[in-house]
Simulated assay, not measured.
Amino acid sequence: MEFADRLGALAAKVKNQAEAIGTEEATKNAFVMPFISTILGYDVFDPLEVVPEYTADVGTKKGEKVDYAIVRGGEVQILIECKPSLGQLKIEHASQLFRYFSVTNARLAALTNGVVWQFYTDLDAPNRMDAKPFLVLDLLDLDETLIPEIQKLSKDSFDLDSIISAAEELKYVGALKREIAGQFREPSDEWIKFFATRVYEGSYTQRVREQFTLLVAKAAKQFLTERVNDRLKTALGAGSMVSAEAPVQSEPVVVDDLDRDTEIETTLEELEGYQIVKAIACGEVKPQRITQRDAKSYFAVLLDDNNRKPIARLHFNSKQKYLGLLDENKVESRHAIDAVDDIYQHAEGIREAVRRYM
């Protein structure tokens, strides 16, 4: 299995089990040890490679332990401190890492709750761990651009010089991406003023600030939606082109509430759901045969861009989300889902819908 596939498989496990893991010890067994062994490739049962409860006396602090130390060539290279998976990681949790970093040869340290991995080095001052991570890996929201950097930490590809040389750029690019994402989710006063004063010619009063708080948030959401749509159109050949191997339809297209409407707004959640349904359906047909159409009442995923061949319907316009699956008589059954990822639980029903049209 390729490195990215192994990482994806662990991410899927984390998504399914994270809420059931309540203690630090359970987090280590379920998520941290598999990451060290399956992803990084170190033998967690070989004390020459992975030392659990690693101890190094620091000044007046005696007998304190770091959860794991990864050793290469007899020298500690990576220190790992663990916290329960349900808890949020805070810099205060890294106090032992700070102390141990200065008295070992380690140039890398990781703070993790099994879900999020924060990697640190000593960019700001030699032999002193930085206060901010240079790389943050979230297994619930995998950033594919980070996969090659994580691979450099693995046993087979370990490249400390390359990791350190790339760390500064990774640190600031990652921080900027997280800041931009935060501004898109909840614009700050500075962000709102920055854009408002560039498009509004009057005085920036309290009333204008309140007005543009809504406008900036709405514009940001529409901008992201349009960018995602553009990417999908490019990937699917303008989104509505039927594959050359798809059969030509002789029957008339049924005109129903799938007709486009100027009030329809395709959301990022709908597009994410479409990508999941498409990924599942691609086990049966070529990806270019899976298309989508949005409507006021639901978002439809179709085979061959044909209304008579619905694969699934996404009802995401209310607080409770539903996945709609249709039987051979086109009778729809709705399945309540709490998150878009829950669509994977209905993979067989989606595949069956595709096979029915084959």
Rank of each mutant, 00 (worst) to 15 (best):
S162G: 13
I290E: 13
E190P: 00
A181L: 07
I150E: 01
Y357K: 01
L153N: 05
V255Y: 14
K233C: 10
I150Y: 02
A300M: 14
L271H: 03
G283P: 04
I21V: 15
L146S: 09
L258S: 11
A281G: 03
S240V: 09
F223C: 07
D341N: 12
I91V: 13
I192K: 07
V50W: 04
V173C: 12
D338M: 02
M1T: 06
V115T: 14
T262Y: 05
E19Y: 04
Y54K: 09
S37W: 08
K177C: 05
G73H: 03
T112L: 10
W191L: 09
V115Y: 04
P34Q: 12
F195Y: 15
I147T: 09
E144V: 14
K15A: 14
Y274W: 05
G59A: 12
T23I: 08
E352C: 00
E348R: 03
L236S: 14
S203Y: 14
Y274C: 01
K90D: 06
E226C: 04
L314F: 03
I350T: 01
R207H: 11
V136Q: 09
R260P: 01
S203G: 14
V354D: 02
H335M: 08
I91L: 07
K330E: 05
V216A: 06
N317L: 00
H335W: 12
K171G: 01
R308K: 12
G74E: 10
S240W: 13
L89R: 05
D256V: 01
A166V: 07
E251W: 11
D161T: 09
R6F: 01
E75L: 11
S297P: 00
E186V: 07
V50Y: 04
G41Q: 09
T55R: 12
R351C: 09
G283I: 02
L48G: 10
V253Y: 07
G22E: 06
E265W: 01
T291R: 15
I264N: 10
V228T: 01
V228G: 00
F45H: 13
E270C: 02
Q292F: 15
V66T: 10
K83D: 12
I21F: 06
Y344I: 04
I343N: 05
Y42V: 03
I180R: 12
I80L: 14
K65F: 00
V76H: 06
D141I: 08
D67R: 11
L326E: 07
R198N: 12
V51R: 10
A56Y: 03
S297L: 02
I350S: 01
A238T: 14
Q320V: 14
N127R: 13
D230W: 01
D141L: 12
R289E: 15
E49Q: 15
G22P: 00
L302R: 13
I164N: 11
F3M: 04
D327N: 15
D256W: 11
A69I: 03
D230Q: 10
A246H: 06
E144C: 08
L160C: 11
R72S: 11
F194G: 01
I39A: 11
V285G: 02
G174C: 05
S85A: 15
A353T: 02
F212N: 10
D341F: 08
S154R: 12
N229G: 05
E168P: 03
V216F: 07
V254F: 08
F119W: 15
F3G: 06
T197Q: 15
P310G: 08
M129Y: 00
S165W: 05
K90P: 00
I164D: 10
